[in-house]
Amino acid sequence: MPNILVVEDSPTMRQLISFAMKRIPNARVIEATDGVDALKKLSSEKVDLILADINMPVMDGLKLVSLVKNNQSYKDIPVIIITTEGAREDKERALAIGANAYLAKPIQTQELIKLVTSFISA
């Protein structure tokens, strides 16, 4: 049963993504409202994939990626970054520090599900 950590500050977006994730068989969704909250969830739960927004208050997605990818116990967790369309620089930065994939908003549910599935079934 894959545990997917959805990190997104906007409640609507978070719900939307979580809803899409629930269409993946057996998937369990853990929600976090920002990077710090995500770290908290990471330390208490087993997480198989992280889906994180870039722009978030307190601690953003870039910092989350950098921590996860530099941490022995988390570094193998795939991280998919969600960016605003056109924020090319941020997207490149995320990939450069180790994000496994990115998806630009507006998100196509089908595309999101396909991408997430490709990581958890691999």
């Binding site: 870039i54 722009n55 953003d60 870039l62 910092k63 990626v65 950098s66 924020a87 620089e89 941020d90 930065r93 450069a96 520090i97």
Partner: peptide, 8 residues
Amino acid sequence: LKVLSEYE
């Protein structure tokens, strides 16, 4: 520098 977002 490399983990800063454009805004930061």
